[in-house]
Design a binder for these strands. Sequence first.
DNA 1: GGCCTTCGATACCCCAGGGGTATCGTCGTG
DNA 2: CACGACGATACCCCTGGGGTATCGAAGGCC
Lengths: 298, 298
Amino acid sequence: MDVDTRELRYFVAVAEELHFGRAADRLGIAQPPLSRAISRLEQRLGVALLERTSRRVALTGAGAALLAESRPILGALAAAERRTRQAAAEQPRITLSVKAGTTGELLAKLLDAYAGEPGSVPVDLLLGDAHQQEARLRGGEADVALLHLPFDATAGFEVEPLLTEGQVLVLPTSHPLARRTRLHMSEIDARTDLPLARWPRVDGTYPDGPGVEIRNLTQLYQLIALGRGAVVLPESCRSDFTHDLATVPVVDGQPVTTVIAWPSMSRSRPVADLVRLATGLWPQSDQDAVRSRGVPGR
Amino acid sequence: MDVDTRELRYFVAVAEELHFGRAADRLGIAQPPLSRAISRLEQRLGVALLERTSRRVALTGAGAALLAESRPILGALAAAERRTRQAAAEQPRITLSVKAGTTGELLAKLLDAYAGEPGSVPVDLLLGDAHQQEARLRGGEADVALLHLPFDATAGFEVEPLLTEGQVLVLPTSHPLARRTRLHMSEIDARTDLPLARWPRVDGTYPDGPGVEIRNLTQLYQLIALGRGAVVLPESCRSDFTHDLATVPVVDGQPVTTVIAWPSMSRSRPVADLVRLATGLWPQSDQDAVRSRGVPGR
DNA sequence: GGCCTTCGATACCCCAGGGGTATCGTCGTG
DNA sequence: CACGACGATACCCCTGGGGTATCGAAGGCC
């Protein structure tokens, strides 16, 4: 009657690989037990999850639904383990996940202020690319994260806005547009000599387009300095580089809101303290782009 | 290395009962296997979850953390099963959970409008008391729910506001205050002959106070008609009764927002349609009390 | 203080079921 | 048509989850 986690993990492996052999390999078991486990899961649910021929494995509608449900559950399980161990630790700590591009200014202000608070605990920083953030928060590797709306997914998290800012175009100082005081997106799109850099999607692939494929910011800045492209970033990135690169505000760029996010069911005192502090650090007027409800630890 | 669901269920049972015998009983197994299972879970996590003597069982900090994490996980698992089965059903349906007190007017408007939509599916209604709502949405018994902010917990759900309204005092027509056109909370509190009815808390117990303990609205209305107390409710409740009871707006009553809520990771088309429709049914001006991000199915 | 009751832990047994190897059946493919 | 790739089946082994009987410690009671 009840599905156990092993079965879920097995199913996810097969659903992702769409190949029993590779999935079994990834799971470190042989193929036959995996086939059996999936069959039993299907039988228990009374539902076909996969359509298999000897040449092709495909998800059914129900399989797709279960896959979507399973991933957050497995993440939550891993998170539960981590948080339980953490709760038993003599010295509590919290882990803050930030994207490599997050401005050091905001971060430094936050961490300094928090360190000065009574009852504050050590904060571990976890740097990573944009798409790791969500998984880390869900998987309990991080207790809090700084995310950027509207780009990062926040479904299932509580969110409190910190700072809303416009975007700027980053380009070589030598480029003609570098002398402008403001720009429209249409002007950027019109310049074929300024292909906008392409960020990786969740699955690691890149959208089509003329721009450079990038993964980290220093590499990106180098490429821009070489005149190979440009990028549109939140204006606070200006403090991150000093030479070679110019920034021009994009007047119709979508505003970017930096938010602090944490798992909905977090009951950690330190996290609640950090969130409360963070929301007080920036003027309220910046915070009307998004509204959220509740603070953890109540 | 990995915790399985059986162990979690066992742990939750013991943590809730704080008694191995009763927990084993509830789980339908004998006590020794349960003791062993918990020991092994503790050993696997490397953490003490329970402090036991032969007279007393108590949660450790880590145990409390795991309990808090476990319940939503088990709920999510049950939900995953239900939704997977549902996804395989030939005829999709959705289940809308509403509190017994939710005004029929709003509900009727929503259901009628949705039924008229192209691509709409049958909607099952699930009525229940206030505290069942959250559990049902989490446990997959319901796909969508109508909740009232700020009273209902929405952590972990996506939420879209529908309607914000003031509150009114409901009292017998014969009462002196019934002739007033508006009231302040302080005036109500000052009247010792109008004890406000007490609602049950999540655990089923009642807060202390002079008012009647209530569980359902018809019972409440009867008691008010008998002059045994009063209650403050959203103004839309006025349409629910026609005689014997008077309503007076409470000018400083906290505004109540009816929201439509759904699980964050819902990818169901019908749910997305219903939400989209619902948010369009009431004027936008009513919706600035809360803001939310995203609609399912994107 | 000694006895009894209560309740979690231990000891020991059984077998369901999870995992492994060998092999089959089926479907593309050259 | 023969071969290769791949999921399903058959069969075996043994881990580990569940049961019964019993122990040991902690209060309560006379």
